[in-house]
C-alpha cells in the first residue's frame, strides 16, 4: 500500500494551478484535502504522474455572504463549514449534512471543493448542493464558468470540470423566510457512506409545501433530484398523496445493487426517507408511519 512514484508541484496561484493542469492534462491530479485522493493512490487505484497541491491558495479558503448568495471557497474544510455561523444561518442544510461526512479527522482535512470535484455518488455534499440549487464556480484558461450543481455531476467520479479547470468556489442562495430543510441517511456505522441518503430543501407555507427539492444520494451514478417532489407541492398532503409520491419515487429511481443493499432495498429506504422527510418538514409525525411505504 505505497503509492507509485509521482511528481509534486505546489501551486503558487490559481493561474499557476491552471497552467500546471493545462500542461499535464489527465496525467495530473489536484490535491486539496487529500482524504479521497491519498487512499486511492496508496491502493494504486490511480497513479497520477503529477500532484498539483493547491493547499497554499488561501484565496480559495473562506465563507462569505454577499447579498442573497453564500459563497464558500473550494479549500474550505468540512470542519469550518461545521463551525460556521453563516452556514448555520444561511444554509443550515449544509451544517446538518456535514455532521454525516466521515469522522472528525477526515472533516479536519477534507474540503468542500475536493468533495464536489471528486463527485462520489454516495457523498453528502454533492446532493446537498443539488438540493440547494448551488452554483459551482470553476476557472480555466479561458476564465470563469458557472455551472448549476444539477449539471455539474455527470457520473461516478465524473463532473463537468475540464482537465484544465479548477473548482474555486460554490455559491448557494441564502435561506428565505419559510425555508425548511431535511437531511438524513442510512449508514451502517456513523461516518460510513450512506446506503441511501436524502438532502431536501423546501419552502413551507403553513401546511403546504410550495417548493421542495429532494436530492437523493447513493441511489444512482450522481445525486438524483427526485421529480416525485412535484406530487407534494401546493396540495394538502394526505397519506394518499404521499403514497402516490412514494410510488412515483419508486418508479423514477434506478438504484444499483451492492454489498450493502439490493435494488429493492434501496428503493424501499428511499421511500422511508421520503415519508420521514415530509413528516418532518410538515411537523406531522403520523405521515411517517408504515402504510405509505
Amino acid at each position: 500500500m505505497k503509492a507509485s512514484a509521482f511528481s509534486y508541484a505546489r501551486a503558487t496561484s490559481v493561474v499557476n494551478a491552471i497552467e500546471l493542469l493545462a500542461e499535464h492534462g489527465d496525467r495530473a491530479k489536484v490535491l486539496s484535502g487529500g482524504q479521497s485522493l491519498m487512499p486511492a493512490m496508496n491502493l494504486r487505484l490511480i497513479s497520477p504522474e503529477l500532484i498539483v497541491d493547491i493547499g497554499d491558495l488561501t484565496e480559495l479558503r473562506g465563507i462569505a455572504v454577499t447579498g442573497d448568495r453564500l459563497r464558500i471557497g473550494a479549500l474550505t474544510r468540512h470542519v469550518d463549514l461545521l463551525n460556521s455561523a453563516d452556514v448555520a444561518k444561511h444554509a443550515p442544510l449544509i451544517s446538518e449534512a456535514i455532521t454525516h461526512v466521515a469522522h472528525a479527522a477526515i472533516r479536519n482535512r477534507g474540503t468542500i471543493g475536493g468533495s464536489l470535484a471528486h463527485a462520489d455518488p454516495a457523498a453528502e455534499l454533492p446532493a446537498s448542493m443539488v438540493a440547494l440549487k448551488a452554483t459551482i464556480i470553476v476557472e480555466g484558461p479561458a476564465g470563469e464558468r458557472q455551472i448549476a450543481a444539477e449539471d455539474f455531476f455527470t457520473g461516478i467520479y465524473e463532473t463537468a470540470l475540464e482537465v484544465d479547470e479548477l473548482l474555486v468556489a460554490v455559491e448557494v442562495p441564502v435561506a428565505q423566510r419559510n425555508s425548511a430543510h431535511y437531511f438524513s441517511e442510512f449508514a451502517r456505522r456513523h461516518g460510513d457512506y450512506g446506503i441511501v441518503g436524502l438532502a431536501a430543501q423546501a419552502v413551507v407555507d403553513g401546511d403546504i409545501l410550495t417548493d421542495l427539492r429532494l436530492a437523493y444520494f447513493s441511489v444512482g451514478d450522481r445525486p438524483v433530484l427526485a421529480m416525485a417532489a412535484t406530487k407534494l407541492l401546493n396540495v394538502a398532503v394526505t397519506p394518499a398523496v404521499l403514497l402516490e409520491a412514494s410510488e412515483t419515487l419508486g418508479e423514477e429511481l434506478d438504484p444499483q445493487e451492492d454489498q450493502q443493499a439490493s435494488v429493492s432495498m434501496r428503493r424501499h429506504l428511499a421511500k422511508v426517507l421520503l415519508a420521514r422527510c415530509v413528516a418532518t418538514l410538515l411537523g406531522r409525525p403520523e405521515l411517517s408511519a408504515g402504510e405509505v411505504l
Binding site: 442510512f186 451502517r188 446506503i195 450493502q260 443493499a261 439490493s262 429493492s264 432495498m265 424501499h268 411505504l293
Partner: peptide, 13 residues
Amino acid sequence: LTPQVILSALGRI
C-alpha cells in the same frame, strides 16, 4: 444481522 437480512425477514423488500 444486516438491514438487508432483517428487511427480508420482515417481508418489507
